[in-house]
């Protein structure tokens, strides 16, 4: 039987392979669903620019054959804001994780959502700091273990989809690596939405989260995620105690409204002298 090649390999920087992700990591599933979602849109792959911060999820853009900016921890959305406002024609996609987006980058996350800047943010939430070896994160479930929570986490985790919805994003969805079809559809919708789109992907980190929480294999983590996922519509009929420890999946927000770079463009059109072209750094002065 002929070896079947991944149809999305064409999007990868093959000279960067092999990648650094652990066996059983969810990042590969998210990448596949991203490419599938992208192919569902009219967006030209060559027009994609990716921005990321620091962490395992932020390593994704380094393997994709497009312009990619691998920035500082937590700040991907700040860099992406400059990139998108500087050139609103680019389709800017941000890859981030729970530590990057919600802990060190939490302030940038809510403000980017508030401005509704036209970015598609894919947040791979594995509930742990994987790159540094399994420390507790702001989405780690209460009672879960990490190398910095040896007696179990006592903090309440963030609900990222609710947080970003409340901050003003125009498209928000949460799915998991066990829902690849729904996830790629959400990514497609996010890419098509002219505004801040936030797609949270609950993902498995068998190496650190699994090992610390009695789910050592990728399969056991997948089973855990799948069994605990509840569709948003069903969850709405359940009370708080029934929802404890559950992962609510589905579309949280889909309310398009005017985004930042379009607002700035309008401001320029109203105020700039007629015929005054925007000068890029490459242009000589008259």
């Amino acid at each position: 039987m002929a070896k079947q090649e991944n149809p999305y390999k064409k999007y990868l920087r093959e000279d960067r392979l092999p990648h650094i992700f652990c066996p059983g990591c969810g990042n590969g599933i998210v990448m596949n669903t991203f490419f599938k979602g992208l192919e569902g849109t009219d967006i030209d792959f060559d027009n994609i620019a990716m921005v990321s911060g620091i962490g395992c999820s932020s390593r994704v853009p380094g393997y994709v054959k497009c312009d990619s900016l691998h920035t500082t921890h937590g700040r991907a959305l700040s860099f992406a804001t400059g990139l998108k406002v500087g050139n609103p024609d680019l389709d800017v996609v941000v890859f981030t994780g729970d530590g990057d987006a919600a802990s060190i980058g939490g302030n940038h996350l809510i403000h980017a959502a508030r401005r509704n800047i036209n970015l598609t943010v894919i947040c791979i939430n594995n509930n742990i700091y994987g790159m540094t070896g399994g420390q507790i994160s702001p989405t780690s479930p209460k009672g879960s273990f990490g190398t910095t929570a040896p007696y179990g986490s006592r903090d309440l985790p963030f609900d990222l989809a609710e947080l970003v919805s409340a901050a003003g994003a125009s498209y928000v969805a949460r799915w998991t690596t066990t829902h690849p079809i729904q996830l790629s559809k959400a990514i497609q919708k996010g890419l098509e939405n002219e505004g801040f789109s936030f797609i949270e992907v609950v993902s498995q980190c068998p190496t650190y989260f699994g090992r610390k929480n009695k789910m050592k294999t990728p399969l056991s983590m997948h089973q855990y995620i799948k069994e605990n996922s509840i569709n948003k519509r069903r969850a709405e009929k359940m009370d708080e105690s029934e929802l404890e420890g559950k992962i609510i999946v589905g579309e949280f927000t889909n309310k398009p409204h005017k985004e930042l770079s379009a607002n700035i463009k309008e401001l320029v059109e109203e105020n700039s002298n007629k015929g005054l072209a925007i000068k890029s750094a490459f242009e000589e002065l008259d």
């Binding site: 500082t72 700040s78 860099f79 804001t81 400059g82 680019l90 320029v268 925007i278």
Partner: peptide, 25 residues
Amino acid sequence: GGSFVQMEDEIASAGAIIGASWSGM
């Protein structure tokens, strides 16, 4: 014909100008 953005803090401001520089501005 240029863009002004008031960011949420100075960390974000420094990040945004680097992003804008790579956009060709």
